[in-house]
Design a protein around this nucleic acid. Sequence first.
DNA 1: CTGAAAGCGCTTACAG
DNA 2: CTGAAAGCGCTTACAG
Lengths: 343, 343
Amino acid sequence: MNYLTNRKTTIRDVAELVGVHHSTVSRALNPGTKDRISPEMVRKIEKAAEKLGYFPNIAASTLKQNRSFALGVLIPDLTNPVFPLIIRGIQDTAEAEGYTVLTANTDDDETKEHDAFKMMSGRSIDGLIVATARRQDSLVDECIKRGLPLVLVNRRVDREGVSGVIVDEDFGICAALDHLMHLGHRKIAHIAGPQYSSTGYERAKAFRDHLTLHNMEADLIEYADKFTVEEGYRTFKQLLVRDNRFTAIVAGNDTMALGCIDAMHKQGLRCPEDISVVGNNDIIFLSRMNPALTTISIPKYEMGSQATRMLLDIINGVPRETMLLRMQPRLIVRSSTAPVVAR
Amino acid sequence: MNYLTNRKTTIRDVAELVGVHHSTVSRALNPGTKDRISPEMVRKIEKAAEKLGYFPNIAASTLKQNRSFALGVLIPDLTNPVFPLIIRGIQDTAEAEGYTVLTANTDDDETKEHDAFKMMSGRSIDGLIVATARRQDSLVDECIKRGLPLVLVNRRVDREGVSGVIVDEDFGICAALDHLMHLGHRKIAHIAGPQYSSTGYERAKAFRDHLTLHNMEADLIEYADKFTVEEGYRTFKQLLVRDNRFTAIVAGNDTMALGCIDAMHKQGLRCPEDISVVGNNDIIFLSRMNPALTTISIPKYEMGSQATRMLLDIINGVPRETMLLRMQPRLIVRSSTAPVVAR
DNA sequence: CTGAAAGCGCTTACAG
DNA sequence: CTGAAAGCGCTTACAG
């Protein structure tokens, strides 16, 4: 605020107060150019800026520098409890480096995705974090074509050479299957997530491969259209029509696991007495549910924070060895899995 | 992308392709000025813009118009499950009107709050939604002084004349207490949220007033410093030191209710057999927990969406009757409350 | 209905 | 170490 007018104070107001050219003020206030101005001058300018309540107009500097200090983040849906933690990791890391983050929900809808991307392009984002990638993703292709710094998180694409922070899905599924086999389960089903998503695809593949390796039946798989409670519910019922002798389920994620358990209860089946269930992601509060969900935990906050660090390095031209950072998940055994009993 | 250079295409590129002045392109592409350009010209310009993949540089238009089409949102913490739904309501409504939203977590820390506000000011936000208000809030005061359009959500301030979308806390607490009284509870305690927050304060006040009205003891209140599981846990233990004959608890919110239940279990007490518990907010998955939490449900998505509509009306100078929209909560009875039994 | 010019608030290459 | 000038890509009052 200026004392006279109601305009916001600019670099020119500060310059006038100190009695220098506004370009000197700009230099004094920018970390990168501050050392070209004499220390006393810098101090005088900082004091004047403080006194006038000056803060830089980011639109102006963005326009001039073609650099916005804004990062875009594309997620399917904030309301899915996997994402708040990932985003918190992104925001905390980005803000610490002076970046603002713009988040958009795509609901896994390609139109919304492109609208969001257009908005972000208009706002000249310096880089993009994508949690919505499909294995074949035209948006990812476009970012690469345009040369926009890009990092994937959680889901990856089939094509090579795209940076990202993902989970070792194979490791997680193997841990879950080993756990179930130790409990005596020999007939295990999989409620698979959508196959356009690397997470859905890789989990299903790991399921098949690992069971085959152990000479077990590996084709009790039902494919869901979305990673939702409703799809878990629907798919479980379909599975039951096909076969009713399985004693355990590996669900594509936690919300689908919840849907499965709901459907079981509706059918008069009990978890874990009749059927054991393993989820994936370890979303909030599931340790408190009845039964407490056995699941594969992934380091959500850390993934967001690592993805951001990776993106900032790309933006700043810092060389990096790892393109694809694969995080280790961890099986958390709770009470939705139990030893198999003869039926 | 331009075909020749690698610059982004601007209004001038479009103008050149069509053979008009760039100001004409600007007018043709802006809804507000489009009607001053001949329809054929508009069509030609739109086609050219499409062909060149033109999208407007928002930094430039923000700089010129002093209007960013960005809205700021201040929340305590994304990771608290009340907020994702509120924010989704905000984002969906804002995006439908062409606005972008900038969200920041403050962790109820005044320094972070002011840092976030500074960042948003630098980005020339057109308005601000504040979910972090304290009853006395210097940031709110500053927005008003500066004339920045402002709407509160969830929490209100003591001073009059500030717009907001809040909950009828009195109604919710009365419903909870009536429910408990019907179940025979006569000695009811309250784990109160922080009193700097209107929600913590009004819930505690409603608790006192309603019990006093029914000639019941109303001073079994323990005050928490934050709305967290940990504080619920700590405060419950303190309560137990003071008095151990209460049979029911009204918790300041759901997360504190979870903390209370944890602490009860640690003390060998059962919920609801020994002590009934009522939460507040109805956050996700609590219907699945054991016991399923009886709680006061608030319309989170709707609150976000209404707050945004209110803010956009203020920004656009649309007159509005209601300043403070008070939403009706609803008691949801589940299994964490039960009839009192003699001990 | 369209054009030409000025200016929003910065940054930065060029001088000195 | 500091100044003067140009320009980033838009919008808009002023002409015609």
